[in-house]
Simulated assay, not measured.
Amino acid sequence: MSHAQPLWRRAVAEALGTGLLVTVVIGSGIAAASLSPGDIGLQLLENAFATALGLAVLILMLGPVSGAHFNPAVSVIDWWLGQRTSSGLSLRDLAAYIPAQIGGGIAGAILANLMYGEAAVSWSTTDRSAGHLYIGETVATAGLILLIFALAWSGRAQLAPLAVGAYIGSAYWFTSSTSFANPAVTIGRAFSDTFAGIAPGSVPAFIAFQAFGAILGAALVIVLYPNAGQAADDVVTPTHTGASS
């Protein structure tokens, strides 16, 4: 497996992308709660719309550097499916991507808090511990993995910014959990006691069911898209193939 960009640069891109994604999620949630007080449906619409657009832009901006995973679940499945064909992330890549994503997510939450005059860290008090929410996270994460690898396997990874943004935007509404579908984003959202927050005590179970959803999504990829691991280098979107600067 070969990558156009050195690992340190790809890790920086993953930290920046995940961080800005969390900033978009939390920042738009704070803005929505302020602009539309008392109307939870409108707040969710505003939050989902901003997140869908923001995610698409971040994939376009940073995908050429790192592939724009911004999600430990995506990175782990990319590594796992690519092993048999020596494509996708190596174990060394994975060891750099995951801490970068988690650290970036936490920094992104702090940035959003500070932009809106909140305390840098305010632990969320929004409890999200319920069985139906765990089902929602399983469905959201499985669908995300299936979508990403379907695009890569079929040679349509260039559509990932639009498709992944659209999927997350719609999953805000069709899943009971509002589609976190991302362990790093889940951890980051615990650092903000705002509209988009999640209580720290709810985080472990959310991540566990995201992991289960990722495994389920990977199983569906194997069933529906044979040899999908051969396209792991194109997840989420192809990195730049020219000479590295």
Score class of each variant (00 low, 15 high):
Ser75Lys: 09
Gly136Lys: 02
Leu146Trp: 03
Leu162Ile: 10
Leu44Asp: 09
Leu162Arg: 01
Arg9Asn: 11
Asn71Glu: 06
Thr186Cys: 04
Ile168Lys: 07
Thr141Gly: 04
Ala11Gly: 13
Leu146Met: 07
Pro64Val: 01
Val24Tyr: 08
Ala96Trp: 15
Ala190His: 06
Val74His: 06
Ala32Asp: 00
Val139Trp: 00
Ala166Phe: 08
Gly105Ala: 13
Leu62Cys: 11
Ala130Asn: 03
Ser28Pro: 07
Pro37His: 00
Ser244Phe: 12
Ile26Ala: 06
Tyr134Phe: 11
Ala109Ser: 14
Ser122Pro: 11
Ala163Leu: 02
Ala4Met: 12
Ala150Asp: 03
Leu16Gly: 12
Ser179Cys: 11
Ala119Phe: 06
Ala68Asp: 02
Phe70Glu: 03
Gly188Phe: 06
Asn227Cys: 04
Ala96Asn: 09
Ile135Pro: 03
Ala119Tyr: 09
Tyr225Leu: 10
Ser129Tyr: 11
Trp123Ser: 12
Ala107His: 11
Asp127Gln: 10
Ala181Gln: 12
Leu20Ser: 12
Thr85Cys: 13
Val76Trp: 15
Leu58Phe: 10
Phe149Arg: 10
Thr186Asp: 04
Ala95Ser: 12
Trp153Met: 12
Ser90Glu: 04
Ala214Tyr: 03
Leu159Phe: 08
Ala142Ile: 04
Gln5His: 12
Val221Phe: 04
Ser244Val: 15
Phe149Glu: 06
Gln83Asn: 07
Leu91Tyr: 13
Val164Ser: 05
Phe49Glu: 09
Gly105Cys: 13
Asn47Thr: 12
Ile59Lys: 00
Ala243Lys: 13
Val24Trp: 07
Val221Gly: 09
Ala196His: 07
Tyr172Gln: 08
Ala152Glu: 01
Trp173Ser: 05
Ser154Leu: 04
Gly217Glu: 01
Met1Ala: 13
Thr237Cys: 01
Gln43Phe: 01
Leu42Phe: 12
Ala15Gln: 14
Gly201Met: 08
Phe149Trp: 01
Trp80Cys: 09
Asn227Thr: 09
Ile30Thr: 00
Val22His: 03
Ala181Cys: 13
Leu58Ala: 06
Gly117Met: 00
Gly169Thr: 04
Val76His: 10
Trp79Ile: 06
Ala171Ile: 06
Val236Thr: 13
Gly213Ile: 01
Gln230Cys: 03
Leu42Arg: 11
Val223Trp: 15
Ser124Val: 05
Asp193Ala: 08
Ser122Ile: 12
Ala181Gly: 11
Ser36Val: 12
Glu137Cys: 06
Gln230Phe: 09
Arg92Asn: 13
Thr237Gly: 00
Trp123Glu: 14
Pro64Glu: 03
Gly217Met: 08
Ala50Gly: 00
Trp80His: 05
Thr126Cys: 13
Pro37Lys: 10
Ser34Lys: 07
Val24Phe: 07
Ala140Trp: 01
Phe206Glu: 14
Val12Glu: 10
Thr18Ile: 09
